[in-house]
Write a protein that binds this DNA or RNA. Sequence first.
DNA 1: ATTAATGCAAACACTTTGCAATGGA
DNA 2: TCCATTGCAAAGTGTTTGCATTAAT
Lengths: 132, 132
Amino acid sequence: MKKYSNSHLRLTPQRIAILDYLEGNKNHPSAEDIYRVVAKRYPTMSLATVYNTLFALERRGQLVKLTIDQGKARYDPNISPHHHLICTRCKTIEDVDTLYRLVLPDTSFEVTESHVEFYGICPKCSKGRGKT
Amino acid sequence: MKKYSNSHLRLTPQRIAILDYLEGNKNHPSAEDIYRVVAKRYPTMSLATVYNTLFALERRGQLVKLTIDQGKARYDPNISPHHHLICTRCKTIEDVDTLYRLVLPDTSFEVTESHVEFYGICPKCSKGRGKT
DNA sequence: ATTAATGCAAACACTTTGCAATGGA
DNA sequence: TCCATTGCAAAGTGTTTGCATTAAT
C-alpha cells in the first residue's frame, strides 16, 4: 500500500486491501484470484470493485494487464520492463529480468515496448510433480 | 486448402471454406472474423463449426492460437516460428520473421518456444491515418 | 453403414455497465 | 457537502457444450 500512497486514488478500505495484496505480488493473479483473497477480509467486497480498482491502477500505469492467458487477464504489479516464463503444464507465470536488446528490421514502426514470452515446462512439472 | 489436404480432417464444405480463407492469411483473424467471411459463401455456417475447425487445426499443429488480444483469440496459419508487431492504436498484428537467439539465465526451465511481441504505432497510424 | 461434423440453442466464463446507496476527501 | 466509489444485478462478449440431424468416408 505504501508504494501507492501518493496516487490520486480515493483510499477506500476495499482498495487498501487490494493494494496490500498486490504489493510485491509475483503471482500474476487474475481478477478472480484477487477477489478470492480480499473477500476473506472484506466479505462485502464485490468483483466489480476489484475490476474498478485494477482499471484505475492500470490507467495510472501502476499495474500491467497481461494478455498471456486466453480469456482471463492476469495482473502484474511489477511495472519495470521484464519478460515472462510460462509453464504450459501448470500455467505458472514467472518473471524474467534479463534485458534483451531486440533490434527490429522494420524501422518505420515506432516500437514503444517489447515483451518476450518463454513457453515450456517448469522444474516442478519436469519432476512429475506439478500439474495443478 | 491444398496445404491441408493431407490432414486427417473430414473435408466438409464448411471446412474447405475455412481452410481456403486461412491459406496464407496474414491478418491474424479472430473466430468471428473468419465466421463473417465464410458465412457469406455458406449461409448455414455456424460459429460453433468455425471453433470446431479451428480447434481441430490447432490440435494438429496446423494453426497457432495467439493470446495477444485480451478476451479474443486470434488465429495464425503461419506455423513457422516468428514474432509479432502489434499496433496499439489500430490493433493490427504484423509478422516479424527475424530469428532472435534468446538465452535464458534459468536453465532448470525447459524452454520449448519463445515469442516476442513488439508494441508500438504502425506507419499508418503515425501518419495520422490509422485507427479503425 | 459408420461415425464424425453440423447447426442450433443453451450454458459458460470473464468483464463491463447501470444505478441507488454509501462514505472518503 | 460533494462526488467518486461501492455492491448488486443485469447485460455484454467470446467460447464451449449438448444433442438431434446430416453427410463424408
